[in-house]
């Protein structure tokens, strides 16, 4: 286990508002993490603190094994926060050269990274002539210049058109497949669900859940059932111990499982009781449903 980022009891107050409250989590090498949370839940503030641009109120954090100063460690990190920020009067290539100087890495990767994000033919265009999608892609190229141990992306698809969103996602997937650790902050759940293996869920600066996406699924899923014989089905479901709550939606019954159970086993039991099903479907809660469930109850 190689920790990349360790956060302990981190707190940030803006006047009377507590943006981040006693937050602790660890990022391990090789995983793709998502930080989820509604707007204003403290995602960007947390990232701002670990990236040296926001001062913490209390608590601590350290990068890697903690032996280096934060700004030195940041040279091994690639990060994009909110909007891409570059010098508008410089060309794409000049901007990347400046980043190389700051990070103290050789300049020979510039063209390779521009190629990766599909901006090689625009390398001599000024940054101010770029569209938002191109700016965002240049930011990704810039974050990758040092072949970072971890790539941090804060709302990378915010404000992009569908093509732009798709391009960015493809790039993220490509990078993740190369084994780079990724930390993705977003409020777009399908985005996180598509690429992340682990999640940190924040609400009002408090961490509600930290762990793998699968582990978040504490429940065993639920079944959708429908039968011409409604009454018989309802009473049969109530008798079966495997089910907890049973909800009705029109002719449809939604039965939540208490234990792991196959749909075929349910079908068999019901058929033996003389109930014929016209519909049977086993489902797991989507990340969105779980997220809403988690953020609502607390």
């Amino acid at each position: 286990m190689h920790p990349i980022l360790t956060i302990n009891n981190l707190t940030k107050k803006f006047g009377p508002i507590t943006a981040v409250n006693n937050l602790s989590f660890t990022i391990e090498k090789g995983n793709v993490y998502g930080i989820l949370g509604p707007n204003g839940s403290g995602k960007s503030t947390t990232l701002g603190i670990v990236l040296n641009v926001v001062n913490k109120t209390s608590g601590n954090f350290h990068w890697f094994d903690g032996s280096d100063t934060t700004h030195h460690a940041l040279r091994k990190v690639g990060a994009i926060i909110e909007r891409p920020n570059f010098y508008p009067y410089m060309t794409a290539e000049q901007n990347l050269k400046l980043v190389c100087k700051i990070k103290e890495v050789p300049e020979d990767k510039i063209l390779e990274k521009l190629e990766l994000v599909g901006l090689l033919d625009r390398k001599d265009s000024k940054f101010q002539t770029f569209s938002l999608g191109m700016k965002q892609r240049l930011a990704i190229a810039s974050a990758l210049l040092n072949d970072p141990e971890i790539l941090i992306l804060d709302e990378p698809t915010n404000g992009l058109d569908p093509q732009g969103i798709h391009q960015i996602r493809e790039i993220i997937k490509k990078i993740a497949s190369q084994g780079t650790t990724i930390l993705l902050a977003s409020h777009l759940l399908d985005e996180v669900e598509k690429v992340c293996s682990h999640v940190v869920i924040l609400r009002k600066g408090v961490s509600l859940y930290t762990g793998s996406v699968d582990g978040m699924n504490a429940s065993h899923g639920f079944l959708l059932l429908e039968s011409p014989n409604r009454e018989a089905l309802h009473s049969a479901l109530k008798e079966m111990k495997s089910f907890g709550t049973i909800k009705e939606e029109g002719n449809l019954f939604i039965a939540y499982l208490n234990e792991s159970l196959d749909a075929s086993a349910v079908n068999k039991q019901l058929f033996e009781k003389g109930i014929v099903l016209s519909r049977l479907e086993k489902k797991k809660e989507s990340l969105e449903e779980q997220f809403l469930e988690l953020t609502k109850n607390n």
């Binding site: 641009v53 700004h71 040279r75 926060i81 920020n85 570059f86 010098y87 508008p88 700051i102």
Partner: peptide, 17 residues
């Protein structure tokens, strides 16, 4: 105004530097 100060810091320049 270009917010490049923020980006410089994120890229690993310290405030002192």
């Amino acid at each position: 105004s270009n917010k490049t100060l923020k980006q410089n810091l994120i890229d690993g320049l310290s405030k002192k530097e």
